[in-house]
């Protein structure tokens, strides 16, 4: 509350805690935490405890659940996790690179057709995902590429949002005078981009990377349409198929619950770590942050 004490004309009344906003925020935080807290507790229960003890009472079966999950079909769970990390990591990296070049071109050059290209790419956001996924699947299967790592990876690279964000970033953070000065010094356009613009746009590029990482990691529809071989499944589709089988055999419930917990840990951890040096506000294109 330090900034407040600096405000001119602060009275004792103004310094008091505003209870209504505080309460509303705490209730909101609790609502958001309930399922996560539940899954943390439920993952500690063994099969009998899950259905018998009070839901928020921890059990003693976490390590058993963990080894059951690891043993399930020779550790396919960890394979799904690794697949997700691969799809999301590589996909987001390529996406940030492609968005960097495309957004920079749209934000820092004026050329014929610029607005048309920009609007066309943005309109891509409006196309329902399944409208793309089904023909993508049919076309890729003609090329013999359906049900492959590429089938999941390639359609995930282009991010209209990424291009949009980098455009804003490039226009705001790479000064035209600097580019002009570099040109005078004989730097090529590629060199200006790679040595000057990319470092300056880095917060924006990290944002695109994170956004796309989360987007790919969380994607369910694309792998559901593209993939048939469960060795290539990402974690979302893997857990879904596990539950679909488990619906008839509640013995698999504990595996699904433990799997859910382990699947959300990496992303939550990622956000908790990065929020120290990366602001959430960057996500909505705030350049000031």
């Amino acid at each position: 509350m330090t900034p407040l004490t600096l405000t001119a004309g602060t009275t004792t009344k103004a310094r008091r805690t505003a209870w209504v906003p505080t309460l509303v925020l705490i209730l909101g935080a609790l609502y958001c935490l309930i399922p996560i807290a539940w899954v943390v507790v439920a993952a500690t229960k063994d099969r009998s405890e899950l259905f018998s003890t009070f839901t928020f009472a921890p059990g003693g079966g976490f390590f058993q659940n963990l080894s059951d999950l690891t043993a399930y079909r020779d550790g396919i769970f960890w394979r799904w996790m690794a697949n997700s990390a691969f799809y999301a990591g590589l996909g987001a990296l390529l996406s940030a690179a492609v968005s960097a070049a495309g957004g920079y071109a749209l934000g820092r050059y004026s050329f014929r057709g610029r607005e048309a290209v920009f609007k066309m790419i943005l309109a891509g956001v409006l196309v329902p995902s399944i409208v793309l996924a089904v023909p993508q699947y049919l076309l890729l299967s003609k090329l013999g590429m359906a049900d492959s790592y590429g089938a999941m990876l390639l359609p995930s690279i282009l991010s209209p949002y990424g291009v949009y964000l980098v455009r804003i970033y490039a226009a705001a953070s790479v000064p035209a005078e600097l580019m002009e000065a570099a040109r005078m010094d004989g730097a090529s356009e590629w060199r200006i981009f790679s040595r000057i613009a990319v470092p300056m746009m880095m917060p924006g590029l990290i944002t695109v990377f994170l956004f796309q990482f989360v987007g790919i990691w969380n994607n369910f529809l694309l792998p559901y349409v593209m993939l048939a071989d469960d060795e290539k499944f990402p974690i979302t589709l893997g857990l879904y198929t596990l539950l679909a089988q488990g619906a008839s055999q509640p013995a698999l419930y504990t595996l699904v619950i433990t799997g859910c917990l382990l699947a959300i840990v990496p992303l939550i951890g990622l956000f908790l770590v990065i929020q120290r040096f990366w602001s959430l506000d960057l996500m909505s294109g705030s350049v000031k942050a």
Binding site: P3, T17, A18, G28, F220, L267
Partner: peptide, 30 residues
Amino acid sequence: PKARSAPFARLMIFLPYAVPGIIAALMWGF
């Protein structure tokens, strides 16, 4: 300005964004 616990609440309310939709649905399903 006078709300307490705002940074904490902001992070907590945002946290579900990091949870894949399908896993959120599975958790709520349970």
